[in-house]
Design a protein around this nucleic acid. Sequence first.
DNA 1: TTGTAGGCGTTATCAG
DNA 2: CTGATAACGCCTACAA
Lengths: 349, 349
Amino acid sequence: MSARRATIADVAREAGVSPSTASVVFSGKTQVTDATRQRVLAAASALGYTGPDPRAASLRRGRSGIIGVVLGGRLRSAFLDPVTTVVLDGISEGIAPLDAAILLLRDDATETGPSLMTAPIDGAVLLGCSAHMRSSLDDVRGRGIPVVVIEGDAGEGVPQIGLDNEAAQRHIAEYTKGLGHERVVHVTMAFDASTRAGWAPSVDLDAITVDVTRDRLRGALEVYPDAPIYHATGSLIDEGYAAGQAILALDPRPTAAIAQTDLLAVGIVRAALDAGVRVPEDFSVTGFDGIRADGIAPHRLTTMAQPAADKGRAAGEVLAALIQGTPTSGVDFASRFREGNTTGPAPRA
Amino acid sequence: MSARRATIADVAREAGVSPSTASVVFSGKTQVTDATRQRVLAAASALGYTGPDPRAASLRRGRSGIIGVVLGGRLRSAFLDPVTTVVLDGISEGIAPLDAAILLLRDDATETGPSLMTAPIDGAVLLGCSAHMRSSLDDVRGRGIPVVVIEGDAGEGVPQIGLDNEAAQRHIAEYTKGLGHERVVHVTMAFDASTRAGWAPSVDLDAITVDVTRDRLRGALEVYPDAPIYHATGSLIDEGYAAGQAILALDPRPTAAIAQTDLLAVGIVRAALDAGVRVPEDFSVTGFDGIRADGIAPHRLTTMAQPAADKGRAAGEVLAALIQGTPTSGVDFASRFREGNTTGPAPRA
DNA sequence: TTGTAGGCGTTATCAG
DNA sequence: CTGATAACGCCTACAA
């Protein structure tokens, strides 16, 4: 047919009006005589023109209608993480007034595809991202793109959606201690982007670049400063299972595991049950997040439930305000203790 | 400081080179003397220029590096649906060679925010969308944007990723029949965008605009043509629970329910158990999808397991091929029967 | 209500 | 390896 796609100029010419008139017909910014509108529309359909090119429009208007959501780690594990999906859900609700769509971005340093820097976004939400993107974050802000961070320190002037990670983790560790447990193990998420699963030889909290991991671990260490630390690379049941196997192989066997997420905890519980270790009679496990734990019924995880949906919604709302120029600030949320039956009194030595 | 953001032209001037040279320094399309590169980079950082504006770049290059994924129904229920998240995961894997990011889009007709038509996308995957977007789909194709459809009929020349919905649902219905069940109920997802949950007074398959719903129902009706139909509005455990209550209130009580998704099935099982109806002794339930069903342990759903991740990956790969100009065609997948213990012989009348 | 003009910021092309 | 030129397609003051 045509070598080149029809543009609004072509349509205007075909309809015998000026480009601006044709433009207005599509954008609806101004009143147009019904007759002219009809002519323009007719010309458009005759030429197979289906509306303004979004790329050109967004260059001209300075807005793309796209919000970037930067996810830590791989995209695939993000989708498989119930907490992340719930937060995403909340974000989409919070940005509703913007009429914007959500662009999923990773925070890989290897970055070849679109990233915070190369994607046409009007704003961004950073979700559980490691610190290594701090520099690109500065660039984005320098560009005037509003940013909100969920559970992370993004520096001066970046609104943060917080969670009482440290206090909450301390709380549940104290609960465990109250049950009499002394030989305990901490099971954490990744320390940084390059972590491999395994036992942490030493503890240097400041070297942990993933804020959530660090804060929760800090809370747990306040109660059990000398307990060994097993770090997974992500929040996955399978990783928890592996952790559980490693823990149960210890001699003497610990009586409790304090996991940083429910998925890890579920994996640990399964590993225990598969090994013939009773939960909670022989071994107690705590989680964190308060997702609906799958696959350990009739067990119910003892955990700290966090308001994930609320966090997401708040992030979306704050970002929307920022984009619309309304002054705002971050919000902090608190977790709630929820007792299940994966914890019990420490077995007598 | 500056009222206006620095542009690449400013940088070029500051560095004493031409705009094109400065551009090349950032894009890396051509070799540049190390000396000039340094000068440009220095000028850039002096001016606070952090790289090309994505909007302008995408206008000029004709590509945005963004793939749209259109989800049927509300975004929030999409995130809560395990099948959808797994498919998304697969898509992100399949489009990896494109180095593109994923833009989440809805197929709302209410159309105020970004949509297929107004988003700067290089391609799109339609996921379980109702037919009402057929027209906008034509527009997108007319614009030359490649599209792939997962489980839906998008018309001529649109590659489709298919699933044997009808045959698979027939298969599991036959299994149920083989167990001797005669009083059976079909539980479906939404018929169309405006469906409200409840009993379907009559059956007009052709009026069902959601392809998956229609195809699965067709398969089930081939085995139980006269069974009543309860239609939910989505694939949610809560909706299944409501369906279960409605079904168990029937007199005489049916002996089996054939649900279109695992989540609906889980809800039905729970409703039965809560009502003191034994599963499967008194009542059998089948699902569809093969997700890890949560919350009915020690029950395991009898279901048809579909390769959700493979479907997503295939969609991504086909789209990538399309965008790169390689000729391709759709792919069809098959579901696998998986026997659980939510089904048993029909109770004797 | 419609037309004119100019630029949004970049990059492909081609010549030097 | 670098520079000049010309779009990419649209929108919005502003003027008529």
